[in-house]
């Protein structure tokens, strides 16, 4: 290639390659946006938009079917603050979380440790404990209701056989929420077990051998020295996601107690459902939703922080 002709060409079309390269880059950007476009549109339409709408609706008095709506500022929140049912609902939700989280985490950790401890029937136990996690909760709630039936339910029959008094489990105000919490634990602990099993498997075997060499003779001392600290991040993580999940309790309440007896099982999502979809007070229901969202967001952010830290450990 002669120098002269090269120079002539680059003089004539100095900008051409740049423009053509830019065209190629534009084509790539176009591909990227058409690949993400549908997802972005749906995210805006079905997630981000609605969340913004909830926040705005919570500032209005909108009711489904009403011709107009008025901006009422924070009136809905003021109403919430003065609403005894709302406070009962919030307290019950927190109480439910406080019952389910230790139960489901403790039981999950316990069975995970027991399963990992020995050889036989590992996968059978694991499968058995996992079935409640995936079985349709609504169908199982109906089975629980039948077992808890006061006159011919299995639970009372067993108690009577042991000479103990039976109860009307779902109709006694002191019992209804704890009973729902037991069902919650029953459904959740298998999920936690799987997370713990994954955590246990990732503890290096040599650590136990080192602990044994260092004189940790009993199972308990090895648990304190190795298992618990190594499981620490997983434990924290499981605590938080159990809290998130139990905070969203709804199915069992809606089917088994409808928030009763005497609001003893009224929980946040049920209040939101009743206000929004039975009384159609959309504005008020939105205010409850915002409260619910704030709690879940805080817990989720805590979860994200834990995950981040775990990543940093390597």
């Amino acid at each position: 290639m002669a120098e002269a002709s090269l120079a002539a060409r680059s003089g004539a079309r100095a900008e051409a390659p740049r423009a053509l390269a830019a065209a190629l880059r534009r084509r790539q950007a176009l591909a990227a946006w058409s690949l993400t476009g549908p997802a972005l549109l749906l995210m805006a339409l079905l997630l981000i938009g609605p969340v913004a709408a909830v926040a705005l609706l919570s500032l209005t008095d909108y009711q489904l079917g009403a011709r107009s709506l008025a901006f009422v500022g924070l009136d809905n929140y003021a109403d919430l603050a003065g609403d005894r049912v709302f406070w009962t609902s919030l307290t019950n939700t927190l109480l439910y979380v406080a019952l389910v989280v230790p139960g489901a985490v403790g039981l999950g950790l316990g069975v995970a440790l027991l399963i990992e401890a020995g050889g036989s029937l590992k996968s059978l136990y694991r499968a058995v404990f996992f079935v409640p996690v995936m079985a349709t909760l609504i169908a199982m709630a109906i089975s629980w209701e039948f077992m808890l039936q006061p006159s011919f339910g299995l639970v009372n029959l067993c108690l009577r056989a042991l000479g103990l008094p039976g109860h009307n489990w779902l109709q006694e105000p002191d019992l209804a929420l704890p009973v729902l919490a037991v069902i919650g634990i029953w459904q959740l602990f298998g999920f936690n077990m799987v997370l713990f099993l994954a955590g246990l498997v990732s503890i290096p075997r040599q650590l136990y051998e080192a602990a044994a060499m260092d004189g940790a003779r009993s199972a308990w001392s090895r648990f304190r020295l190795v298992t618990l600290p190594m499981l620490g991040p997983v434990l924290l993580f499981v605590l938080v996601i159990s809290a998130i999940r139990s905070f969203q309790v709804f199915d069992t309440v809606q089917v088994l107690t409808k928030g009763g007896p005497a609001k003893a099982t009224e929980v946040l999502l049920y209040s939101m459902y009743a206000e929004g979809f039975e009384f159609f007070r959309s504005g008020y229901a939105s205010a409850i939703t915002v409260v619910f969202l704030v709690f879940v967001l805080i817990l989720t952010l805590v979860k994200a922080r834990i995950l981040e830290r775990r990543v940093h450990y390597g």
Partner: peptide, 20 residues
């Protein structure tokens, strides 16, 4: 945005979606 949307529990959008 994806990470942000990951924070939204499905129940939170029920009222506006119902209205929509």
């Amino acid at each position: 945005l994806v990470l942000l949307c990951l924070l939204i529990p499905p129940q939170a959008v029920a009222v506006p979606l119902f209205l929509l």
